[in-house]
Simulated scan of single mutants.
Amino acid sequence: MPQQQTSSPGQGQRFDWWAAPAAANAADRPATPGRSAGPAGPAVPAQPSSVRPVQSAQPTQAPARVEPPAAPSAAPARALAPATDRTEVYRTVQASEAFQDIRRSYRAFVFPTSGAFLGWYLMYVAAQAAAPGVMRSQVAGPLNVAWLLGLLQFASTFLLTWLYARNARTKRDRAALGLRWDTQDQLR
């Protein structure tokens, strides 16, 4: 296929980048004064007479038939090998004793703490439904038992968040970071 030469527009001329390929085939289409039809049908401004596409000395041929891609070769199999190796590295890390210790430590904190907090919340709701007289008991001034337990729900949420962060920082983060660095070294 011949090389297309383009020139930049002169002073006072406008060059539309998206219309440039349509202008290259202007010799193949019938021209109308002032406008020419683009490849998709809408009219595009005609090129100024100073900017003309270079025409080939060869006659115009029908577009070549696009061949379907060839059968897969050995190259894709090699491309999959590193991904398989990565998978094996992560599976080995997951089966390692260090990873299991980190998971065990996480579960030992999160499951009992979540259960205790859920029990505490359900106790508050059940007490509100089962013993409204007790919940209306005044503690101090306008503060009653229901308000006190409700505010303690917020306090316990902040306390559990702080305990979780402290537990993660002291028991799991250093071990997890070491395991992460080892895994990254294996993947290089």
Rank of each mutant, 00 (worst) to 15 (best):
35 R>H: 09
4 Q>T: 01
3 Q>V: 10
62 A>P: 01
10 G>N: 08
96 S>A: 08
157 T>L: 12
109 F>P: 00
153 Q>F: 07
114 S>Y: 05
32 T>L: 13
174 R>S: 08
58 Q>D: 13
7 S>V: 15
31 A>I: 09
118 L>A: 14
39 P>F: 11
3 Q>M: 12
2 P>E: 14
89 V>R: 01
62 A>S: 03
80 L>T: 10
33 P>D: 08
134 V>E: 12
11 Q>V: 07
91 R>T: 11
102 I>G: 02
64 A>Y: 03
65 R>C: 07
84 T>C: 04
18 W>F: 15
114 S>V: 05
167 N>I: 08
148 L>A: 02
26 A>D: 01
140 A>F: 10
79 A>T: 08
74 A>H: 06
100 Q>V: 11
42 P>Q: 06
4 Q>L: 13
176 A>S: 03
127 A>S: 15
31 A>T: 13
178 G>E: 12
16 D>V: 07
159 L>R: 02
82 P>K: 04
164 Y>F: 15
133 G>F: 01
180 R>H: 14
172 R>Q: 10
96 S>G: 06
35 R>W: 15
71 A>T: 04
173 D>C: 11
50 S>I: 10
145 V>D: 02
59 P>C: 03
129 A>S: 09
23 A>V: 09
40 A>I: 08
165 A>C: 13
27 A>T: 04
93 V>N: 02
86 R>K: 09
13 Q>Y: 03
5 Q>D: 13
19 A>V: 07
188 R>L: 11
80 L>W: 07
20 A>I: 09
96 S>Q: 00
119 G>R: 12
65 R>A: 13
17 W>M: 07
156 S>N: 12
9 P>M: 09
181 W>L: 10
166 R>Q: 06
136 R>T: 10
46 A>L: 06
75 A>K: 00
58 Q>L: 13
119 G>E: 11
175 A>R: 00
171 K>S: 14
60 T>G: 10
33 P>E: 11
51 V>C: 06
99 F>L: 12
155 A>Q: 01
9 P>S: 05
172 R>P: 00
